[in-house]
Structures are given as structure tokens and as C-alpha cells.
Write a protein that binds this DNA or RNA. Structure first.
Lengths: 178, 178
DNA sequence: GCTCACATGTAATCCGTTACATGATTCT
DNA sequence: AGAATCATGTAACGGATTACATGTGAGC
């Protein structure tokens, strides 16, 4: 089956538990956001499509007037998810980093501006690091509870990644005489 | 002036020398590709727009039957580029990493599949590292020639980045008992 | 009463890629 | 002679974001 990446993310999210479209989005904002994002405009239509394909199953859970439709993975959905994870196929990788792009052209700037740019980049990743560290306790708790280790592992990857960049910036800053 | 990121890349590329649209694209493929990419479909229309704005100046250089239009930066273009580099504004940062995304869900896979996935990710970044290392001599030569240090610095950043990820994968691989 | 979080969805729009169309020159 | 590279451009398409529209429930 040829599904979009978004489809697989949705399947993966549902494997971690029954969820509504809203919950998928907010959970992604607190977990995969660092290396993968999705918007409502992708998630809701995708859930419909996956239900038509029989990979997920939705159920109305409206209590009172508030509408709510929670989805869960079917056996076919779980199989599809697993085959995607284990398929050795090419891995889409894409980085867009405006800070490094500006740095690429930074010979046009003064040393003071160069250091300023490096500090701005560093501040950005310091902020990201703090955001990831803030969700770490919740990720640890979830790991203990349901036994899924990889969400925590990838979170730690994100933290190490942010530190790698901040360290690199710091070294560069020290190397420039203002 | 409110220009797209693509516009600034084009300005930056022209600051490094008079170039055609084709040359901008192929140069980007050998320099910024790791953290910023652009296609002909963006570059050619952008060159026209920038010329209308007076930020670049094109000149027909067709020798014989082959058409060729090379552009160079105007003083206004150089000023615009510099103000972008030094403006402390928010830096667009976006990562899409399908390997890490799959890893996030890898609790659904067997240990052997988990190690296989990590090896695939590592192989991908090892390849990127080799590609970047291959263009390093040319970048060093260019640095010696025109004195622009940052293209080489950002290239070295790319190499360190690739090594960071391959090292991380290796550590993870060792931590899984197959 | 107000604000914030929960909840669903679509339409307009933007951004960017891919494919196509065309042709000259250079290298093997 | 044929392949690869140089060179320009557009049209169709796809993917994703943003804004909009709508309403409930909980806490202050």
C-alpha cells in the first residue's frame, strides 16, 4: 500500500492509544514536533481516508453536546505500520536552517554581526533544548507505564542534537575576534 | 522590504560572483544543499522579480546560439542582503527526519528490525558525510582564493552534524541486544 | 461572565517540486 | 554519433499551512 508519511504518523500515534484528531495533533506537538509536524488540515482528512481503507476504526464518543470521535488501529493498520518501520526503503531527510544559511553568507557582515548571528542561533536551540527537557519527565513516566522506550529515546536524541548545535555555536563565537 | 528566503539565497549567491540561474542552482547543490535547497521553478522567477525590484541586474551573455543570462548584485541588493544577515529576526528552522520518526514508533518492531533501522539511518548520514567531504577541497580552494570563510565553515558544520548523527546511531545500535 | 482548553472540519492559499519542452556545446 | 552538461523557462501537480467557521465544557 502506498501511503503518505502523514498517514504513517497517524497510524503510529494511534498505536500508542485510542485518540481523537485533536489529541493526535497536541500529542505530536509534545513529542515528534522536533523532527516531524502535522496540522489539522492534514490529520482530519487523513483519518477519514485511513478509515475507508480499513486501517483505523473511529467511534463516536460524544458525551453530552461536545462531539468527539476517537480512533484506534485495526489489525491491518498495525501490520501496515510495522511494514513501514521495518522496510529498508529510502528515508526522507530534509533540513531547512535559516541561521546556517545566513551564516553561509556571513562574510558580508562585520565580526560583531557574525557573533550576533551565532548567538541568535544558539539562543534558538537553547530554547528548543529547554522545551524538550520540559517534556522529558512526562516521557519517562509514559515509558514506565506502557513500556514504549523509543519515544523517550528520540526525545533524548533531540536534546543531544540541540546541545550539539549550541556547543558548535559557542566554539565558533569564541573563534571570532570582535 | 519583505522578501522570501529564496530571494535572499539568490542575492547571497550573486554576492559570491556573477552567475546564471543554472549556475546558482548547481552551486547550491554543491554548497547549501545540506541546509537549504531550491529548484529552477523558484530560482528563475525569483531572478526576474529581483531584477524588477532593482536588487539584481541581468545581462545577456549569449555567445553563439546558446542563450545565457548572468546576473549580478546591485548596491541596493547588497544592502538588502546585509540587512537580512544582521537582522536579529526569528530564524526559520525545520527538520523532517523520517528515520527518527520511524524510530519513534520502533517499539512496534523486533530488536533486529530496530537495529536494521538504526543502520539504515546511519548509512544515510555516512553517505551525506562522504558527499560533503568530497566538496571540501573545492571549498578550501575557494576560501583561499576569494577570502570568504563562511562557506567552508558551514560545510564543516555539515560534516560535524553528520558525524554527530552517525555516532549517536552507533551508540544506540550497541545498546540493543538482538 | 470570560477565557482557555477541547473538538471538528473545510476552503483558500502558498510554497515548492517534478515533469515537460527546447536547444546548444563539449567530451568521449 | 551519442551522451553529458550547459541553459532557460513554464505548467501541472502535490503537500501543507492558515484562516475561518462553529460550538461545548471547565475553571476562575
Amino acid at each position: 500500500m502506498d501511503l503518505s508519511k502523514t498517514a504513517y504518523v497517524v497510524l503510529g500515534m494511534l498505536r500508542l492509544g485510542k485518540r481523537t484528531g485533536y489529541e493526535i495533533k497536541s500529542f505530536m506537538d509534545r513529542s515528534t514536533r522536533f523532527f516531524w509536524v502535522a496540522s489539522y488540515g492534514q490529520i482530519y482528512p487523513e483519518l477519514k481516508r485511513l478509515e475507508e481503507l480499513g486501517l483505523v476504526e473511529g467511534e463516536a464518543e460524544s458525551q453530552g453536546g461536545r462531539q468527539r470521535r476517537a480512533y484506534m488501529l485495526t489489525a491491518a493498520g498495525e501490520a501496515e505500520l510495522r511494514s513501514w518501520i521495518a522496510s529498508g526503503g529510502p528515508l526522507h531527510f530534509e533540513l531547512r536552517h535559516e541561521g546556517v544559511l545566513r551564516l553561509f553568507f556571513a562574510d558580508a557582515a562585520t565580526p560583531a554581526e557574525q557573533v550576533g548571528l551565532l548567538r541568535t542561533i544558539r539562543a534558538e536551540h537553547t530554547r528548543v533544548r529547554a522545551e524538550l527537557a520540559a517534556i522529558e519527565p512526562a516521557a519517562e513516566a509514559a515509558c514506565d507505564e506502557d513500556g514504549n522506550r523509543f519515544p523517550l529515546i528520540t526525545l533524548e536524541f533531540g536534546i543531544a542534537y540541540a546541545e550539539f548545535i549550541t556547543d558548535w555555536c559557542e566554539r565558533m563565537e569564541r573563534g571570532i575576534d570582535v
